[in-house]
Computed example of a mutant assay.
Amino acid sequence: MSSVEQQQHTHHVDKADYLRRLSRIEGQVRGIARMIEEDKYCIDILTQVAAINKALHAVSLRLVEGHIGGCVVEAAQEAQRTENPELVDAKVAEAAQAIGRLLR
């Protein structure tokens, strides 16, 4: 599968929702930069960093769910049609690697 085909597999997600979430996170990051510029209390800054981490984790989990529910399921269906189990094995391995990166 080409990288173009892989990029198009985001059709299982609500792009507008992701863009809204990421825009909100971007605003939070700019807010932290202002807090640092204004010498705000360290604990307040750390609280905002924790909120951003939580928001990014939520986005990541939704993306993983979309990948498994869309790409992996599609690969399983294609594997069944073509009698090629390696298709699903590759998608599962790809998902496992992505999850591993998230956990580091």
Rank of each mutant, 00 (worst) to 15 (best):
H11M: 09
R34M: 03
G27K: 01
A55F: 13
V72W: 02
V49Y: 01
E37C: 11
H57M: 15
V64A: 12
H11L: 06
P85E: 00
Q77A: 13
I32L: 07
H67F: 12
A90Q: 15
A55L: 03
G27H: 02
A50L: 11
A75S: 12
P85W: 01
Y18Q: 10
I99K: 09
G66W: 02
A79R: 04
L103A: 14
T47D: 06
Q28W: 08
E78H: 12
Q77V: 12
V49F: 05
T47I: 13
L61H: 14
S2M: 12
R21K: 03
G70V: 01
R101I: 14
A93Q: 03
P85F: 00
Q6M: 10
I43L: 14
G66M: 02
L102W: 01
N53G: 09
V88N: 02
A96H: 14
Q8H: 07
L56K: 11
D14Q: 03
A76E: 13
I25M: 00
V49N: 00
L87T: 11
H9M: 10
T47P: 05
L63R: 00
Y18N: 05
L87K: 13
A58V: 06
I52S: 06
V4L: 11
T10Y: 10
H11K: 10
A50I: 11
I99E: 00
Y41L: 05
L63G: 06
I99V: 14
G70P: 05
G31Y: 01
R24K: 10
N84K: 13
A98Q: 02
C71N: 04
Q6R: 09
A75Q: 07
E5G: 04
R101A: 09
L61M: 15
A50H: 14
V49D: 00
S23C: 06
C42E: 09
R20F: 05
V72P: 04
V13E: 10
E86C: 11
T47F: 14
E37S: 12
G31N: 08
A79P: 08
V49Q: 04
R104P: 15
A76G: 07
V4P: 00
Y41N: 10
T47L: 13
L22D: 10
A90V: 15
L87Q: 11
I52Y: 04
S3H: 12
V59S: 03
V59I: 07
G66K: 03
I36S: 06
S3F: 08
A75E: 02
A98T: 14
Q97S: 15
A51L: 12
S3P: 07
Q97W: 11
Q6Y: 10
V92M: 02
G31L: 13
H12M: 08
R30S: 10
G27P: 04
L87S: 04
V59T: 14
D89P: 13
A79H: 03
A16D: 06
A98N: 06
L61R: 15
G27Q: 03
R62C: 07
V88L: 10
E65M: 02
R62D: 06
T47C: 15
A93R: 12
A50E: 11
G100A: 14
G69D: 08
L103W: 12
I45L: 01
T82W: 04
E83A: 09
I45G: 14
A51N: 13
R34K: 09
Q97R: 14
G69V: 02
S60F: 08
A76N: 09
R62G: 08
T47S: 06
A90K: 15
G70A: 02
D39V: 04
L103F: 07
E74T: 11
K54P: 13
S23F: 09
H67W: 02
